[in-house]
């Protein structure tokens, strides 16, 4: 977006941010926006840029509403007229909050409505990836545990089986008999 520079030496660039309540019919919304724009037109201001953010959650309740619509205007205006406009904005019933800021020199207009949505999507994807990673780790742990348990369970019975085969028993008994018989003779 283009940088903001006042058209003449007398005028300044002003940035106006307006907060409107969210449950609002589109007709009313356009009416309120037209009213605000009319104020500036009567004061002889030129609109440089406009950014409608749309529905957004609020950090705390403002006049009973938990969600709001932000609208950002950039106007080229004479500084003397700003006071009247501020006064009129304060009286307007549908405007929850408004703020006039003088942006710094060579300020570049950024469309924060787009930026915010992109950020939200990236945040969601980050959360999903984190969940997936956690699930994968859990699975790996479970598989490793199962393998360990099977290893422990398998070798123990094999040894027992080997020791108590019928052939072995026969061999052992034969050897013992031999020994006993030999010993008896010597004694």
């Amino acid at each position: 977006m283009a940088t903001l520079t006042p058209s003449s030496e007398d005028t300044r660039i002003y940035e106006l941010c307006v907060l409107l309540p969210y449950p609002m019919q589109p007709k009313e919304l356009s009416e309120v926006q037209n009213e605000v724009e009319k104020l500036f037109e009567e004061a002889g201001g030129k609109q440089v840029a406009k950014d409608v953010w749309g529905r957004r959650g609020l950090a705390y309740k403002i006049e009973g509403s938990t969600e709001g619509i932000f609208v950002v205007y950039y106007y080229d205006l004479l500084p003397e007229k700003m006071e009247e406009i501020e006064h009129a904005l304060r009286i307007m019933p549908k405007v929850l909050r408004h703020m006039v800021v003088k942006p710094p020199k060579d300020y570049q207009v950024v469309e924060f409505s787009k930026k915010y949505e992109e950020w939200k999507q990236s945040e969601q994807s980050a959360v999903e990836t984190r969940k997936k990673d956690q699930e994968e780790e859990l699975r790996k742990k479970m598989i490793a545990k199962q393998q360990r348990q099977t290893k422990r369970a398998e070798p123990a019975p094999k040894k027992v089986v080997k020791e108590v085969t019928e052939k072995d028993e026969g061999k052992i008994t034969a050897e013992i008999d031999k020994l006993i018989s030999a010993d008896e003779l010597e004694l």
């Binding site: 957004r56 609020l58 950090a59 403002i62 909050r97």
Partner: peptide, 11 residues
């Protein structure tokens, strides 16, 4: 502080 006033951040 400005973001708080506009309800974007919590006080």
């Amino acid at each position: 502080e400005r973001a708080r006033f506009m309800g974007m951040l919590a006080y």
